[in-house]
Amino acid sequence: MKKHPLNRRIRLATLALAAGTALAAGSAQAQDKGSVHLAYVEWSSEVASTNVVRAVLEQAGYEVEMTSLSAAAMWQAVATGDADAIVAAWLPTTHADYMERVGDEVVDLGVNLDGTKLGLVVPAYSDIDSIAELNDHADSFNNEIIGIDPGAGLMGLTEKVVDAYDLDLALRSGSGATMTAALESAIQNEEDVVVTGWTPHWKFARWDLKYLEDPENVYGGAEQIHTIARQGLEEEMPEAYAILDAFEWTPEQMGEVMLMNQEEDADPYENAKQWVEENQDLVQEWLPES
């Protein structure tokens, strides 16, 4: 069920009134324009992009709330109006099931990042180059594929890969953090390991890795990351909608933020604000002309 428009208007009016009392004389900061709720999935790429969008929306005068959810719940939140938008929709393959279920209830604002890839990843020193070779070397890979959170579209695709190649390796679910920890441990000991992988991701900058070839093309070709908004957002918050619609960057730019987030005691929100401050030429392209 969609949020009641009257409740939303009351909430936004209250926020705007409270913010109005904090305006400093001569400040260029616009009066608070309301609150934008962004949902995201806890992938390093989406942590980076969602925090950057948050920083940009705040620069434009909005308050921003972020909620980390499973991929399925993230899509559902936008469909029901519990979240205003996501910048984390991997299409046309990874999140195809979610788009099929709720596509008529959301608004696709198009691509915010082009040049993604999905697949199984191994250290570059591994003796194998194809998924089809995994069974012959299953023991050296501890008879398992290290995955991420069970609700992720990538995990659903990998289950299909296990079936398509009749693999003798079990797909182990966990999280993005446990996947990279297992990868790091194996590389430190020069052991074989196979993990679910995607580009862009900071692990490719840190270690020498390779994708296993997918002759059955189960993972599909290159994908894009889309921005998805709830119905009614354009009418209720046209400027926020315009910023979300204009947001677009490259894997290299996203990679800069992801690497910042891997530093010890890193704060993804503070890193995003720093990156936004240092890349105002690009950010200004996302902001509506005043």
Score class of each variant (00 low, 15 high):
157 L>Q: 11
157 L>F: 01
157 L>I: 10
157 L>D: 05
158 T>G: 00
158 T>E: 00
158 T>Y: 01
159 E>V: 03
159 E>L: 07
160 K>R: 15
160 K>W: 06
160 K>E: 12
161 V>E: 10
161 V>F: 00
161 V>W: 00
162 V>I: 15
162 V>T: 12
163 D>P: 02
163 D>F: 01
163 D>K: 07
164 A>N: 05
165 Y>V: 03
165 Y>F: 10
166 D>A: 14
166 D>K: 11
166 D>M: 11
166 D>P: 13
166 D>L: 09
166 D>C: 10
167 L>A: 14
167 L>H: 11
167 L>G: 14
167 L>E: 12
167 L>Y: 10
168 D>V: 00
168 D>F: 01
168 D>Y: 01
168 D>L: 02
169 L>R: 02
169 L>H: 04
169 L>C: 07
170 A>C: 08
170 A>K: 13
170 A>I: 10
170 A>Q: 14
171 L>H: 03
171 L>Y: 00
172 R>S: 14
172 R>Y: 09
172 R>H: 13
172 R>F: 09
173 S>A: 15
173 S>H: 15
173 S>F: 13
174 G>F: 01
174 G>H: 03
175 S>L: 02
175 S>C: 03
175 S>K: 03
176 G>L: 02
176 G>T: 03
177 A>G: 11
177 A>W: 05
177 A>M: 09
177 A>Y: 09
178 T>K: 01
178 T>F: 03
179 M>H: 03
179 M>W: 00
179 M>C: 02
179 M>K: 08
179 M>R: 12
179 M>P: 01
179 M>F: 01
180 T>L: 06
180 T>V: 12
180 T>W: 04
180 T>K: 09
181 A>W: 05
182 A>S: 15
182 A>M: 07
182 A>C: 08
182 A>H: 11
183 L>G: 05
183 L>Y: 06
183 L>V: 01
184 E>C: 12
184 E>K: 14
184 E>I: 12
184 E>A: 15
184 E>P: 13
185 S>W: 06
185 S>H: 11
185 S>R: 10
185 S>K: 13
185 S>F: 10
186 A>G: 08
186 A>M: 06
186 A>E: 04
187 I>P: 09
187 I>H: 04
187 I>A: 06
187 I>E: 06
188 Q>D: 15
188 Q>T: 07
188 Q>W: 04
189 N>M: 11
189 N>P: 10
189 N>D: 15
189 N>W: 06
189 N>Q: 15
189 N>E: 15
190 E>H: 09
190 E>L: 01
190 E>R: 05
190 E>N: 12
191 E>K: 11
191 E>N: 10
191 E>S: 10
191 E>T: 02
191 E>D: 14
191 E>L: 10
192 D>M: 05
192 D>I: 00
193 V>C: 02
193 V>W: 03
193 V>D: 04
